[in-house]
Every structure is written in structure tokens, then in C-alpha cells.
Design a protein around this nucleic acid. Structure first.
Length: 500
RNA sequence: GGCGGCGUAGCCAAGAGGACUAAGGCGCGGGUUUGCAAAACCCGUAUUCAUGGGUUCGAAUCCCAUCGCCGCCUCCA
């Protein structure tokens, strides 16, 4: 079976064949670091992190680049407004971004190049375009001439003739309205930190050129996958293609993958929309991740196919949280039964299929068939939503096995081993999506020794009441605890407590 | 005006010509279990995929039209 991906360039699903067999280069357009990132900025990184994990699992050696744009108009303006040095602001925002990525389990990024560190390469590149007659200086700016690029518009299906008449751009310095800026002349009031010397005078790179230069520098002139939000298709990615392919004479990225945009009340989260300002505040990643578990946000993002838009709401997050608990509860259950956590490194069922013997073989076969199904749906354009559905089915199958075999009350070595191997399988598959990376116990969870002891007392008192058939008192203890978010659970082996 | 996306159960969301009398999650109803719960498991929750035509032996899936929502064409993940 081969992997198929939807390519924006062709508008079709294609069989994935890397430029160099066995190796995959991925470039994802990262943030411009002038303001805190919001939930929408997390979608691309989370999805591509899952894609990298999956491709690695499928045997590819993956190199993943996410750029940081730290030389840009809005960053300069914001730094001036806050009265801080440009690169100081950039550094702070980048740090927040990185810590958010860490919480989201995005660990696969190999390079995070900054535009400011590639100025020399960018200048060389622009010079190359000028030498080819594809770019022209004008009053200290340098523009790309879209008319020299015959394929211009192939990504976004726009022809310059039809489209640019609509724009009210009558820049006197441009030859054509669709020409875009490669190099931007500095203005006197701008800080020296962003004035770079060039053959055309002091200035800084235009918006698109840094992506072309850094991607080709790190991944080669032709690489495999270029990703970003759908809002980048035009003009950003279109212009990247134009300048890159004109410069090298070769095709740029082979597959273009675009993720859907995050919406709120069916509207795109936008930086300029007044009515959304308050919501935006809440959706700032650092704030959101202070309140919500990173794994939950990641799970929420992966619960929708990457090309579909995500409607974000508190209600939806809460519903998803309940779903995730199903897995955590099962993991706790497996730990209770086997004494070994599913997060450990004992073999999963697929790693040691022989470990499960004949009477339980049917169960083992089911588990392996879910694994197969998981691979099938992921092969089909990285359908993480369908993959998660398989995870739920697998979890249900394991729970049913435990119930039917009465593994909790009448455990046998064979059935316990089967439960552990199946649980490990579930975690292993989840980890291909970047889920279940870290142990997350819900029973008797992290309140320290003192709380643990207090809970023990309450549980013992309640047990005493129950033995004396004083169920009103016993239930009162349980109900009061429930009100503060602590659930008491009576199990065959005794009572345990859980927090939400 | 041009380009693109979306419309599947109460909600979220897969499915992209035959395995669909349409996955999975949340919610809801019934049951097993329990002192009662919680959890888990079982059963039920869309004869139908915005609407109307068409192509086809066969369509949620392809084509056309209509309605509604959204994005891009200026900075945007």
C-alpha cells in the first residue's frame, strides 16, 4: 500500500513518492513573531508533527523545517509601539511559541531558521533573479516581474490578466500590478537593526523571499512537501513558486498541503476583526495552554481532517475532553490489572504477536486488524480523524475483552498478558499521532501525600458506613466530593478516587 | 467580479462511484453490573447525506442549476 496525499497544485490526491527515495523534506510556513500566536497557528505544526511521525513510522527519513519570520513590517511597527528592540520582541514571541509547541507535543521540528540569519543568502537570491531579468530595482526596492514567469498562478488558479485588474494597486514603481516586493528599501525612521546593506541600498527582505531561500537552502532546490494554512495559497505560496522556479529553473515543492483555517462562530479567526478581539484574547496559545492540557488541544485538532476548518468553542473542547478520558481510564484499568503501565516499553501485540495464545487468539487478531485499519486511513491523506475513530474502536474492544474474560476479578496470566500487549498497541498507535506521549494517571492524581492520606480517611469512613448499611451517610460523602470534582469509584479491590 | 472551500443525526465529525439498510466521539433513551452510583459493556438514537434536476445497472460520493455559510484576491497558519 502506498501513501496518498491531496496536492493543492493539482487539486487531486496523488501517490506520494519523494524526490529522493526514502527521504522526505517538509517545509511549513511558521509564524511572524510580532504577536502571541493563537489556536489557529497551532493547527499546522500539530498536523505536520503527526505527519512526520507517521512518515517516519512508514520508513521515511524526514527533515522538517518551520521558519520564523523575524524581519517584517508589522513586527517593526509592534516593536516601536511597545518601545522595545525589534529582535527583543521577536525573541520573546518566539520563546512563547516554542513553549506552546512543546506543550502540544510538537517535537519533530528539525530546523527553525530565522529570516534575519539568512540575509546574505536572500540578497544572493534576489541578485540571481535580477541577473536573469526576472526582477528589477526601483527606488531602492526590488520587484519580481510576474510576466516573466509563464506558470504564474498555477497554484491558486489565477491568471494575472484577469485578476489584477480587480486590485486597486497603482503603484507607480511597479511594472505590473501583480509584481511583488523582493527587497524593501528602509525608511529613515526604522531601527538600524533592520537596515541591511545590499546592492540596492539599505533595506530588508520582502515577505515571500525568505521562505524560498531558507527552504531551498535547508531542503534542496526541489523538495517534497510544502505546507501552510489555506490563506497562504495566494499570494504567498504562489509567489514562492514563481520566484523559486524562475531562479532555479526547476520545480520547487512537489506536494502542496494546506490545512483548513480555524474558525469561531463560523468565522475565520482574524487579526483585524474587532468583534473577535475578546475571543482572540482567550485563544492566545499561551493562555489556552495554561488552562487546558496540551494533549487535549492536540487531540481536538487531530479530530478533524487537516483540510477541513475547525470550529473552536469551549463546548467542543469539553466534549473532546470527555472522549479523551475514555483512553486514560482504560490505561488506568490496564495498570490496575497488570501492574505494568501501558506507557512502559513492554512489547505491543504487533511486536510480539505470538505472546497471545490460542483461546485468546481471536482477540489478538481483532487488535491487529484495528492496527491495519489505522494504517489504511493514515495512508489516505493522513486522515487523523478516522485514525482516532479506530483508536476508540480498539479501546472498546480491549474493554470488552476485560469484561468478557472477567480479567479484573478472575485474572489469568494469559489474559493479563493479552490486555497489556493490546494496551501497548493502543498507545503505540496513538503515539504515531503524537498522543499518549506522557503518562497521565487519573486515579489518585497528583495532590501530594497529605491529600492522599486525607482521601484515605474519607474512603475508610465511608466504607465503615457502607458496612453498617448507612448508605445515606456513605452517599453524602461521595456526593460532597463529587461537587468539588472528586469521583469515588467502588471497585472489586476497594474504593479509589479520581479527579476530572 | 474572479478563484477556492463548506453544507452528513441534537452537537462534533469520517466517508469522495458498488463492503453505506452512512465510521467514531459527545449527548440522549433502554439494559447488564452495582446497596445506590461511577466506569465498562450491550442495544437504540440519519431508509438518509442543503434543495432540484441529470449521468450511471448503481451516487452522500460525478455533472448542472438553486439556496445558505465561509475564505482568498491587502497582512494572515
Amino acid at each position: 500500500m502506498s501513501i496518498r496525499v491531496y496536492n493543492t497544485l493539482t487539486g487531486e490526491k496523488e501517490t506520494f513518492e519523494p524526490v529522493n527515495p526514502g527521504k522526505v523534506g517538509i517545509y511549513l510556513c511558521g509564524p511572524t513573531v510580532y504577536k502571541p500566536s493563537h489556536i489557529g497557528h497551532a493547527v499546522g505544526p500539530v498536523i505536520f508533527d503527526a505527519i512526520k511521525r507517521y512518515l517516519t513510522f512508514r520508513g521515511f527519513e524526514v527533515t522538517w523545517v518551520v521558519n520564523i519570520t523575524d524581519v517584517e513590517d508589522k513586527l517593526i511597527a509592534e516593536a516601536a509601539a511597545q518601545n522595545v528592540p525589534v529582535f527583543e520582541l521577536a525573541r520573546r514571541v518566539t520563546e512563547d511559541y516554542n513553549s506552546a509547541m512543546k506543550k502540544l507535543g510538537v517535537t519533530g521540528i528539525d530546523h527553525m531558521p530565522k529570516a534575519s540569519e539568512y540575509i546574505g543568502d536572500i540578497i544572493d537570491y534576489i541578485q540571481r533573479l535580477v541577473d536573469k531579468g526576472a526582477a528589477y530595482p526601483s527606488d531602492g526596492d526590488v520587484y519580481f516581474d510576474v510576466t516573466v514567469c509563464k506558470g504564474y498562478g498555477k497554484l491558486s488558479n489565477r491568471s494575472p490578466d484577469e485578476q489584477f485588474g480587480q486590485r486597486e494597486l497603482q503603484s507607480g514603481q511597479k511594472r505590473n500590478p501583480g509584481d511583488f516586493c523582493l527587497w524593501k528599501a528602509s525608511k529613515p525612521e526604522e531601527p538600524d537593526a533592520v537596515k541591511f546593506d545590499s546592492p540596492w541600498g539599505a533595506g530588508r527582505p520582502g515577505w515571500h523571499i525568505d521562505c524560498s531561500v531558507m527552504s531551498m537552502k535547508l531542503l534542496g532546490e526541489t523538495f517534497d512537501i510544502h505546507g501552510g494554512g489555506m490563506d497562504l495559497i495566494f499570494p504567498h505560496h504562489e509567489n514562492e513558486i514563481a520566484q523559486s522556479e524562475t531562479a532555479t529553473g526547476q520545480s520547487f515543492a512537489k506536494y502542496w498541503l494546506h490545512n483548513g483555517l480555524t474558525r469561531f462562530n463560523t468565522k475565520k479567526i482574524s487579526k483585524s476583526d474587532e468583534e473577535m478581539a475578546r475571543f482572540m484574547e482567550k485563544m492566545v496559545l499561551t493562555r489556552l495552554l495554561a488552562e487546558r492540557d496540551g494533549e487535549l488541544i492536540r487531540y481536538l485538532i487531530l479530530g478533524t481532517h487537516y483540510r477541513s476548518p475547525i470550529d473552536f468553542s469551549d463546548e467542543e473542547v469539553e466534549a473532546k475532553r470527555k472522549g479523551l478520558m475514555t483512553f486514560y481510564r482504560l490505561f488506568d484499568r490496564v495498570l490496575r490489572i497488570t501492574g505494568t503501565g501501558v506507557y512502559g516499553d513492554s512489547p505491543s501485540l504487533s511486536q510480539a504477536p505470538g505472546a497471545v495464545e490460542e483461546p485468546l487468539r481471536g482477540f489478538a487478531d481483532d487488535v491487529l486488524s484495528y492496527r491495519q485499519r489505522f494504517v489504511e486511513v493514515m495512508d489516505d491523506d493522513f486522515n487523523t480523524a478516522a485514525a482516532i475513530a479506530v483508536l476508540f474502536e480498539l479501546a472498546g474492544r480491549i474493554n470488552r475483552f476485560i469484561d468478557e474474560q472477567k480479567v479484573e476479578t478472575e485474572p489469568g496470566d494469559a489474559s493479563k498478558a493479552a490486555v497489556l500487549a493490546a494496551g501497548r498497541e493502543l498507545v503505540e498507535l496513538g503515539r504515531l499521532l503524537g498522543l499518549f506521549l506522557e503518562p497521565r494517571a487519573i486515579a489518585g492524581a497528583g495532590g501530594g501525600e497529605r491529600l492522599d492520606a486525607v482521601m484515605r480517611v474519607l474512603i475508610d469512613v465511608r466504607q465503615y458506613c457502607r458496612q453498617n448499611k448507612d448508605f445515606r451517610a456513605a452517599d453524602m460523602i461521595r456526593d460532597k466530593l463529587a461537587e468539588i470534582g472528586v469521583t469515588l469509584v467502588d471497585r472489586p479491590g476497594g474504593t479509589e478516587w479520581e479527579t476530572r
